[in-house]
């Protein structure tokens, strides 16, 4: 399947992926590993990615994208560069970003368990350490998977030492909340046309709507309505204390108030830095100025920082 078609399907899945899954549509993307543009099972990806080292890094892309979002112009990406510089084995996850984050989190938790089992059964031997790297929504999916594992629904967490988040809206994305308010206002107007526009706006996928408040559990989604607000709540799910968390935020402007409001154009800096998390070490966060949201997924300076964190003690 061509890369362009994969990317088109990823956008379609991001916009109406929950509808595709609900109706059994064959355009739906199922969570899998991806290698050279192909979706693979954990067994196949371990077989296809020799040699698998005992340290793995799992890369999880964001909304409406595929693993190609990580690609630098020269064809490398954070995964292949970490493999070159630190000897870790990269695994790229592909998933339907239109599904609720909690569904993708559970699916990722099971996929990682299967990866661990596949490595243990392979000639390369068992994995000893796993680093999770999530970009944008991918970071929330990583958090959701870790939450499921911490709740006893998966076992991969024992291998995870660190999770890295790049441009992840830990406290939600204000544009989604704004869209929610506009939709509610249009629906409140007693006119069939404005109601139709609101209906069309509300067709956006569950995954997209989860970004508004960074809902990583199904129970979090219930707090979404009926309150309409443009400001953040504190996220009710803290960063797991048993692993180290490292966060990268982008900011288009060096002005602190602009960074707080707009951040990388999609995710405000306080949201990307999980400002309510508390207890995060200063050397676990990095704000890069002059970076847009999409640029964060393939930025040389971001890589230098990720490499230092993954290669650190």
């Amino acid at each position: 399947m061509g890369r362009r078609l994969d990317e088109t399907l990823a956008v379609l899945n991001g916009v109406v992926g929950d509808h595709l899954a609900r109706t059994g549509n064959e355009l739906v993307t199922r969570m899998s590993f991806a290698h050279e543009g192909r979706a693979l099972t954990p067994e196949d990806v371990v077989r296809t990615t020799p040699p698998v080292s005992h340290r793995a890094v799992v890369l999880v892309h964001g909304l409406m994208s595929t693993e190609s979002i990580w690609a630098f112009p020269d064809g490398t990406d954070y995964g292949s560069q970490l493999a070159r510089d630190l000897g870790v084995t990269p695994f790229y996850v592909r998933y339907n970003s239109g599904l609720p984050v909690a569904d993708n989190g559970l699916a990722l938790a099971h996929l990682l368990d299967e990866l661990i089992a596949a490595c243990a059964a392979s000639s390369s031997g068992p994995l000893e350490e796993m680093t999770l790297l999530g970009y944008s929504m991918g970071g929330l999916v990583v958090r959701s998977a870790c939450h499921e594992a911490a709740a006893g629904k998966a076992g991969f967490l024992r291998l995870v030492r660190r999770a890295l988040y790049v441009g992840t809206p830990h406290l939600g994305a204000p544009y989604e909340r704004l869209g929610r308010v506009v939709s509610a206002v249009l629906r409140a107007v007693n006119d069939p046309v404005t109601r139709l526009i609101a209906d069309i706006a509300d067709l956006r996928s569950a995954g997209l709507q989860d970004l508004g408040d960074a809902d990583i559990r199904h129970e979090d989604r219930k707090r979404r309505s009926p309150a309409l607000r443009l400001s953040d709540w504190q996220h009710p799910v803290p960063l797991l204390p048993q692993i180290d968390h490292y966060l990268v935020a982008g900011s288009l402007s060096s002005e602190p108030w602009l960074a707080d409001l707009f951040g990388d154009a999609l995710v405000p800096v306080p949201s990307a830095l999980a400002a309510d998390a508390g207890g995060l070490r200063l050397d676990h966060v990095r704000v890069l100025e002059g970076r847009s949201h999409v640029a964060l997924a393939h930025d040389p300076e971001v890589y230098v920082q990720l490499c230092a964190w993954v290669g650190g003690p």
Partner: peptide, 25 residues
């Protein structure tokens, strides 16, 4: 063929939902 089948289903869904919405308006 699976992709064509999925695209067909999606177009039928869109026409059906669009027609229902326009009828209501």
């Amino acid at each position: 063929l699976g992709k064509w089948r999925g695209l067909t289903a999606l177009v039928v869904d869109a026409v059906t939902a669009g027609s229902t919405a326009v009828e209501r308006i």
